[in-house]
Simulated assay, not measured.
Amino acid sequence: MFVLRAILFLTLAVSLRAAEFSCTVTNAKGGEPLAEAAVSLIPLDQPAPPVPADAKVEIVQQDQEFSVFLTVVQTGTHVMLPNRDNVQHHVYSLSRPRRFELPLYNPGQTESIVFEVEGQVTIGCNIHDWMISHVVVVPTPWFAKTDDQGAARISAPAGRYRLEIWHPRLGKPDTREVTLSDGSAAQASAPLTLKPDRRVRRATGGKTGGYR
Rank of each mutant, 00 (worst) to 15 (best):
K172L: 15
V73P: 03
T122Q: 07
A28D: 11
I165E: 04
L41I: 10
G210L: 06
I113L: 07
W130F: 06
L81G: 01
K172Q: 13
P49R: 03
T179W: 05
R96S: 10
V135G: 03
Q61Y: 00
R212W: 04
V3C: 08
V14P: 14
R162H: 11
H89M: 08
P168M: 04
R198W: 14
G183H: 06
G206D: 09
P168G: 06
P33S: 00
Y105R: 02
N126P: 03
E101A: 10
F100A: 04
A144G: 13
C125W: 00
T146S: 07
E118A: 13
P141D: 01
C125T: 04
A6G: 14
R201Y: 12
M80N: 15
A13D: 11
M80Q: 15
T11E: 10
N106P: 15
L34K: 06
I7K: 07
S112Q: 10
A158I: 14
S40T: 10
V14H: 13
D147S: 12
P139Q: 04
E101R: 13
I7P: 12
D54E: 15
L170W: 05
D174Q: 11
P157R: 00
F66K: 01
V51L: 07
A144Q: 07
C23P: 11
P107S: 02
V72K: 02
C125V: 06
H78G: 15
A190L: 07
S67W: 02
F9R: 08
I7E: 13
P103T: 00
S133D: 07
L34R: 05
P47T: 08
V72M: 05
